[in-house]
Nucleic acid binder design. Sequence first.
DNA 1: TAGATTGTTAATCGATTAACAATC
DNA 2: TAGATTGTTAATCGATTAACAATC
Lengths: 209, 209
Amino acid sequence: MGMLPDKAVPDIVIGRLPIYLRALAHLEAEGQRIIASKDLAKRLGMSSAQIRKDLSHFGEFGKQGMGYDVTYLRDQLRTVLNIDRRWDVALVGAGDLGHAIAYYGGFEGRGFHISCVFDNNPQKIGRRLGRFEILDAIELPAKLRELDIRIAIVAVPANAAQAVVDDLVTGGVKAILNYAPITVTVPAGVHVQYIDPVVHLQRMSYYLE
Amino acid sequence: MGMLPDKAVPDIVIGRLPIYLRALAHLEAEGQRIIASKDLAKRLGMSSAQIRKDLSHFGEFGKQGMGYDVTYLRDQLRTVLNIDRRWDVALVGAGDLGHAIAYYGGFEGRGFHISCVFDNNPQKIGRRLGRFEILDAIELPAKLRELDIRIAIVAVPANAAQAVVDDLVTGGVKAILNYAPITVTVPAGVHVQYIDPVVHLQRMSYYLE
DNA sequence: TAGATTGTTAATCGATTAACAATC
DNA sequence: TAGATTGTTAATCGATTAACAATC
């Protein structure tokens, strides 16, 4: 008699966990030891029931009458999100955006570490970008396999993005953060998230007079 | 006897329109004149019914048996999203990220135009960032009113973000794209969208082994 | 016309919330 | 203990989808 698999946690719930985690990190930096779902909800502009429901998918992290221990909940969420470790990340694209990403200090300490940078421009290959030597994008799949990299950031022009993504998939990458303003196609089992500032601006301009 | 207001279009629908618009722009660049909801859906990894339903909130843009005229639908979506015009945008923060944003060529042509840049660092004020002179952030509210700016991009460290947002609100800004990794508080009627790459990475690392 | 695809309805599916027993 | 807040259930709410008449 086989075990039924747990019902998968909805992706929309997973998407909120990093927001909770970020708020908890700030609370801890402020020296707060305990937080009630009601107060966290207020801070995040959502309902306390939603926070409790979301967390209940993963365990019982609070104490009735008290709330949640900030540090404990933070650590639990890190474990749930698989960032109780450090992930090496490949960055593809060494233009202005790639530069900003390579120099961004916010990855360390939140579970990620950029470990290599690629570009296909012969003018850039072999040069330095911060602490990185820019590698030839032609070597992408081989290098990714060699370094066992599962996460990549794409910061290339839209017209190059799908080809880069294909190379990343060939190299074994399973999670892609795509800054190129284009929807890309990937096989099942590969995750893609998009960052396109214009999409966010357009979404807001709808509400402007 | 008063008119009942139209039921507001759900925000989740508004959030998909820029994705449709982006795809339509690419289709047009590829020279495609007509697209069926089925084909657009396939390209975007969603259902054709959802696309048709979303569009039906705003009008009848297609032709039975044919599909949608790419250029016509693109123009209609631009109108719906209020980007059949150009919005001036203020950028706050002239660090690495602000630099990348100021130099990013993707705003023009999609409805937005960065028109001024602010920073609070005396070392930077008065210097140039690309085509901009960096203005003193102390003048934010006054300058925003003077230029009648309604949209701003925040690219400052997390610990400065809430104060900057407060100044933007004072200056009359109604839409804020926040790159600082912190949830900010704004009055009703002011819209905020967040870009935090680490949130996206964490959301994906959940699914990695 | 025959074939294709829209726009829309109604059914299904899933997410959010209110409420409260459990309990710290 | 009394008060507060969790974890969970059931009800509500809202979004997605299947299906098809309308029609190009």
